[in-house]
């Protein structure tokens, strides 16, 4: 089943009518108003902060509303080394986020444990959370994070949003 990734637009009816599907509109709204939860756990978080600052300005992509309450976010950006102790907290916060929700693993540590092959470090947040986008780098530059965000937006746009919602609710 193919889901429309663009809004239908008829030039003849310009300024009067846009034809589309509910799913496409919902996705369009969701992808352009992501509310991230900055899960800053180590050095990558500095780059995450920098992505939000004026030079890189994450708000250009509609994702500047960082919230620290999981109940008010739909995108978790895991930036940094995930220790086992923190992993449980991260999992808990993810569980508390309302659906639909997405996860970006920012940096080598969040993606695979990075250089910390240690008894204390979770070898990738994808062991406990479903990661949508992995951003490589140690740390990734803010541009890389923004690229990851754009990729996520593309992913969201073609998601079967209604079905996903339904699946999450049942």
């Amino acid at each position: 089943m193919k889901f429309p990734d663009t809004l239908g637009f008829d030039p003849k009816l310009e300024n009067q009518l846009i034809l589309t599907e509910v799913s496409a509109v919902m996705n369009w709204m969701r992808k352009n108003s992501l509310w991230p939860m900055p899960m800053g756990l180590a050095c990558c978080a500095i780059e995450l902060m920098s992505s939000g600052a004026s030079r890189f300005d994450i708000s250009r992509f509609g994702a500047e509303v960082m919230r620290f309450s999981p109940r008010q976010t739909d995108l978790m950006i895991v930036a940094g080394t995930v220790t086992y102790k923190m992993a449980l907290a991260a999992k808990r916060l993810y569980d508390q986020m309302p659906s639909p929700k997405w996860v970006i693993a920012m940096g080598a540590c969040a993606s695979s444990g990075g250089m910390y092959r240690s008894y204390a470090v979770l070898q990738g947040i994808d062991r406990i959370l479903p990661v949508d986008i992995y951003v490589s780098g140690c740390p990734p530059r803010p541009e890389a994070l923004l690229e990851g965000l754009i990729q996520l937006q593309k992913k969201i746009q073609i998601e079967p949003s209604l079905l996903r919602q339904k699946k999450a609710d049942c």
Binding site: A87, Y119, A120, Q123
Partner: peptide, 22 residues
């Protein structure tokens, strides 16, 4: 969740051979 956190091999931090680098 517990088994995820203790690693595939049951040892924390030792991810098992399906984790590549770990």
């Amino acid at each position: 969740l517990k088994s995820a956190c203790s690693g595939v091999s049951g040892q924390p931090g030792k991810g098992g051979n399906d984790r590549g680098r770990a």
